[in-house]
Design a protein around this nucleic acid. Structure first.
Lengths: 161, 161
DNA sequence: ACTGATCGTCAGTATTGCTGATTATATTGA
DNA sequence: TCAATATAATCAGCAATACTGACGATCAGT
């Protein structure tokens, strides 16, 4: 079992004005918190959020190459090798021949993988319900609208150098 | 110069419905994007977002120990040693004796550190303006309100176990 | 002074992002 | 068709970061 269980992290403290007023900083901290809560649940399943992302992506496609998964999830080429190795060891994924392009693999989810994904998505739903419970439907629609627009922007095109 | 310059990363692709509908996933991707854009600018200054966070925190306090900084920014104890080592090498921070508790240091920002922080915060502002430019003031207020409430939650208290 | 806790450090491991090289295969262009 | 070029996965190796566990110095309470 190479994949070590993540431990629960401690809670944070108050933040100084300068940082607490930066939207980017708030975004980063909120994301970190949600991810930590998710992974705290996930550690019982020996999975990381990144691995769940891969499982979800693979399960939604008939053919997924490592390169494609990496592009969609912003994971490096060489890190993909490592991650798929781990998930294959855990029998959640399989590398199969890709008839369409023999340089690459068709990465497929196994039935164990489908089961693990289902449970992990339930964990995700619970964490979300928990974190978002206090906000109105209207607020949540606004939040999702803004976040999905930002997420679609693309990383470069930001420096007019 | 141990701190290697970060390279610009490529932009991502479309995402499958299952993930794209998860607020937590959107949050994580939006944060990743903003952070990447920020660090793409910052790489000219040989700084990471995390280091800027430390500089900002230290500059806003008269006395800051490594432990306090780590707690506020959710950075591990041993990683703090490494990070402060780097920032001290770069002459942006100094470890001074802490009269109040001789086990710890009083971490202080240098004048070079103050200058670097000022420039980095300008970078941050630019990236934010760029990313958030298309949203209304009303949307941004909602966004900030939600994010700061989530960021204050604390990581544990998420499992009713 | 004794006990137990805390702060910083170090050694060592795991994960992730990157570079550069290599192998196998695809694609393109002459 | 064949040669040049590009791409998918892999591997070796480096850097950054989150851990664990152990350690010495120091602190707080008794």
């Amino acid at each position: 079992m190479t994949m070590t269980n993540r431990r629960r992290r401690k809670a944070g403290e108050e933040l100084p004005a300068a940082l607490g007023e930066s939207t980017g900083f708030l975004l980063s901290k909120a994301a970190q918190l949600v991810r930590e809560r998710f992974e705290n649940r996930l550690c019982a399943r020996d999975l990381t959020a990144q691995q769940v992302g891969i499982l979800s992506l693979v399960s939604s496609r008939t053919v997924a190459t490592q390169r494609e998964i990496g592009k969609a999830l912003r994971i490096d080429r060489t890190t993909m090798v490592y991650l798929v190795d781990r998930l294959e060891e855990m029998r959640l994924l399989e590398r199969q021949d890709n008839a369409a392009d023999r340089r690459s693999y068709a990465v497929k989810i196994t039935s164990a993988g489908t089961g693990a994904l289902k449970k992990a998505m339930n964990d995700a739903r619970r964490v979300e319900n928990d974190v978002l419970r206090d906000f109105s439907e209207r607020d949540l629609r606004t939040l999702r609208r803004i976040l999905s627009r930002i997420a679609k922007l693309g990383a470069e095109n930001g420096g007019e150098r």
